[in-house]
Structures are given as structure tokens and as C-alpha cells.
Design a protein around this nucleic acid. Structure first.
Length: 291
DNA sequence: CATGGGTCCTGAGTGC
DNA sequence: TGCACTCAGGACCCAT
């Protein structure tokens, strides 16, 4: 599922291909996925591609923007007409597009094409004034950016104010932006913190360790081009590599790489949660588990 | 205000 | 083989 490292990888791909060019036409095949007036951005030069948490913002020269959230299964795939430089031999996706999951097709001013595919149709795209981006529901409720605003002190304050399980807190976009299920699980393992631990009762030492671990797994994910857990592909139609480095995520029933205990799966906040019962010790300050 | 549950949707997985 | 059924999951919306 695209989280900060995956969305940032997508952003870089979009920036690489779209900066300085324009969109000649937009074909919306699934009406509900596209809000706003597409005429507002057609034939306007793209001047920036930004990311806030898991949200993307494409800015146009006329002070309009197209914002997008790919949720779990959304993909932006670029297909160059002049060359097949982004054709992936294993996936071959650039050649197979559009397919039954292609919901939006951007015909670009240079003759190339950008596809938006989304199997589960949870993603969305909308056009608005650039000045209004941060008034949108998703963007106005975002917490600090891990690589920019999330100092240890800020992180500690966020944890101290909450009695929720730490796993739930890490994934709360209004508290910290960009972290989802994969990186929350992996960061907690790396820090040796049980995912059900009460946020406010985690020791200072562990808070520092968790902060470091979170940034480390996000950086590792970014360096590997993200995690292609289910459907994630970058703008070139290629998979990331972080899925080969999961220590706990989706490894329930398998041995911990460090202590050989069996990785467990529980549900916290309605989401699958994976941890090593030995490396991430149960503590007194653990929220009651569900199911 | 904070929190928890239902909802959207479809492919994968399970049981017979 | 195939059918019926259940489940996962990010953010939003609503109820408490």
C-alpha cells in the first residue's frame, strides 16, 4: 500500500515526466474518481509536483492544481510514445495499458500518455485552486511530516497526549503524516515496541528509539523505491524493493529473523498488526487486544 | 473534542 | 472445474 516512501517515489516519477509540459486532454472513464473541472488544467503548463503525507499535488501555471490520493491500489503509469524506456520486461505494463482498471487517461501535450489505474477504486483525483489545496479535508488535517517537522520532541509530545495504542497513533494522519500499516509495523519491530503499548506510557528511551526506527524504515523504503506489497508500481511501471526486507509485516507464522520466535498477527484499530512476541515484549501498559 | 464502527470496492483465499 | 462466501484496507462520515 502506498505510504510515504511509495508516494514520494511516485511524486519523483511524475516530476521527472510532467514538469514543464501540459495536459492536452483528460478522459474520465469512472466519473466518481474525478472531481472538479478538467478544463481548468487542460493546456496549462505543469510547474510543480508536491507531496503532503500520502497526498499528491500537481500544480499548474494558472494557479490551479490537481490533487490525488492513490489509497491502496492506485497507480500513475507513464507511457512514452516515442520510446519504451519505461517498459518493464517482466510486467510489460506500459504496453498493456489501458486495461480494465484504467479509470483516467491523461493525453499529454508532448504526445505521451499518463494512466491512472485503480483496482479497488478507493483513490481520488480532484481539481481545485492551488490556494485551496490546504482547505481540502485530507490536506488540512495532516500532522507533521516525518522528514521535515517530526523532531523527537514533537514526537514525544504527540505520544504523551494519547492513551491509544501506539500502532494506531503512528497510522493516524492527523498526528503524523505519511505512515501506514507497513512502516508502522516495521518501525515498531525495529524499536522493540509492542504495537498495543499505550502511547503515553512508552518510556523516554523507547520513544527516542521508535522515532529513530520510524525514520530509518521510511528512508530504507524510499531508497528501495517503496514496497510493492500488492499493487504498487512506480510511474515507470516498476515494482519497489522494500517488500523483500519486511521483518514482520505479513510474516505471521514465520520465524523472527533475530530470535526465531513465530511472528504473530493481531488486530489493532481494525487493522492487521504483525509483531514478534519476544523482540516486542508485552508490557503492563498494553491496551486490551481485540479478537 | 476524541474515539470507534461502518462504508466504499474487488481480487485472493477458503470450503465444499 | 466452479460457485458462494469472507476478508483486507485508507480515509471519510456519522454516532457516541
Amino acid at each position: 500500500m502506498p505510504e510515504l516512501p511509495e508516494v514520494e517515489t511516485i511524486r519523483r516519477g511524475l516530476e521527472k515526466y510532467l514538469l514543464g509540459i501540459s495536459i492536452a486532454d483528460i478522459e474520465v472513464r469512472l466519473i466518481k474518481m474525478f472531481e472538479g473541472k478538467k478544463e481548468d488544467i487542460i493546456d496549462q503548463k505543469i510547474v510543480g509536483v508536491r507531496r503532503f503525507g500520502k497526498g499528491l499535488v500537481i500544480d499548474f501555471e494558472n494557479k490551479k492544481s490537481m490533487v490525488a490520493h492513490v489509497k491502496m491500489t492506485g497507480q500513475f503509469i507513464y507511457k512514452g510514445v516515442q520510446s519504451f524506456q519505461n517498459f518493464h520486461p517482466q510486467i510489460g505494463i506500459a504496453n498493456e495499458l489501458p486495461n480494465k482498471w484504467t479509470h483516467i487517461i491523461f493525453s499529454l501535450g508532448n504526445g505521451d500518455v499518463l494512466y491512472y489505474n485503480d483496482i479497488r477504486q478507493f483513490g481520488w483525483l480532484k481539481v481545485c485552486a492551488t490556494d485551496d489545496v490546504h482547505s481540502l479535508t485530507f490536506f488540512k488535517n495532516l500532522g507533521p511530516e516525518p522528514f521535515r517537522d517530526l523532531t523527537v520532541e514533537v514526537f514525544r509530545n504527540i505520544l504523551q497526549e494519547s492513551k491509544r495504542p501506539i500502532k494506531t497513533l503512528l497510522m493516524d494522519q492527523s498526528k503524523i503524516s505519511g505512515v501506514g500499516n507497513i512502516y508502522a509495523n516495521e518501525a515498531l519491530f525495529k524499536a522493540g515496541v509492542h504495537p498495543a503499548s499505550l502511547s503515553s506510557e512508552i518510556t523516554n528511551k523507547k520513544v527516542k528509539k521508535l522515532h529513530d526506527s520510524l525514520l530509518e524504515v521510511l528512508i530504507q523504503g524510499l531508497e528501495l523505491g517503496g514496497a510493492s506489497d500488492v499493487n504498487y508500481l512506480n510511474v515507470d511501471g516498476k515494482t519497489g524493493g522494500f517488500q523483500h526486507h519486511f521483518k514482520v509485516y505479513r510474516r505471521d507464522g514465520k520465524e523472527c529473523f533475530y530470535c526465531q520466535s513465530l511472528i504473530k498477527r493481531i488486530v489493532i484499530g481494525g487493522r492487521g498488526t504483525f509483531y514478534c512476541p519476544r523482540c516486542q515484549k508485552e508490557k503492563a501498559a498494553v491496551v486490551k487486544k481485540k479478537k
